[in-house]
Amino acid sequence: MTQHAVNVEAATARPAVTIRGLRKSFDGRQVLGGIDLDVPGGRIVSIIGQSGGGKTTLMRCVNLLEQPDDGVIEVNGEAICAGGAVTCKDLARLRQRVGMVFQRFNLFPHLTAVENVVLAQMHAAGIGEREAVERAVRLLTRVGLAHRATAYPERMSGGEQQRVAIARALALGPTVLLFDEPTSALDPESTGEVLRVMRELAADGMTMILVTHELPFAREVSDWVVFIDGGKIIEQGAAADVLDRPREARTRAYVAKYAASG
């Protein structure tokens, strides 16, 4: 297993997220056992691995939805936690810089699409109503949902809901986006819509950390792939290396399984 978290080309990019010695246990059971990871700005890092491996917990530590027990996480060069203590002074600002997209979308069902995108702009970022609505409309247009802007989530397909969720996260101007299995709850057509939006974000240079079982997509968009099992990084490297020529037996078994199931 390599300790070189950054490939040669990416080493020149400024790190957006740096993780050192990250540990987390739930009820005495270790879920993350010392994770070291670098995510350079403008790059896409995919995290793959069996369920229960700690992928979601890792992501949730990056925006401090979960408080680590030990280790250091830096976002844009600023330590947000160290040695089990939260050092980030402004959680709201951290979460504006680190957006998150969930597997189950988690849209606010009592609000229309455009209001979902407006809410945190006004109440977390202090953006004025008019500007917030304008930006929401722009972002919904960008994810191809201008025609659904005033629809409620329950009237939308899964793919549409997830694209609203992406617009909602983008509205706060994040420097890093976390995607936790964004297409796992979607049918193939919806998956295609969401992947198309993510592909465009990638082309625009958005820094992304992506948990996914969509190996062909991970292969296509990621600069770096990390295989996690039992709370530890088993293998990491350039996407082509890890996915096409995995060195570890566990990685090979996982890749074989998900390549076969599509």
Binding site: L65, L91, L94, F102, H123, A124, A169, L172
Partner: peptide
Amino acid sequence: IHSGQNEAAQALGLGRGTTFGHVVLPQ
């Protein structure tokens, strides 16, 4: 109300009061 609602609000940087008033209470 699904716990995902609180999570999403938190992840968007909404405070506890705003989350209750704008996300939990209306639902």
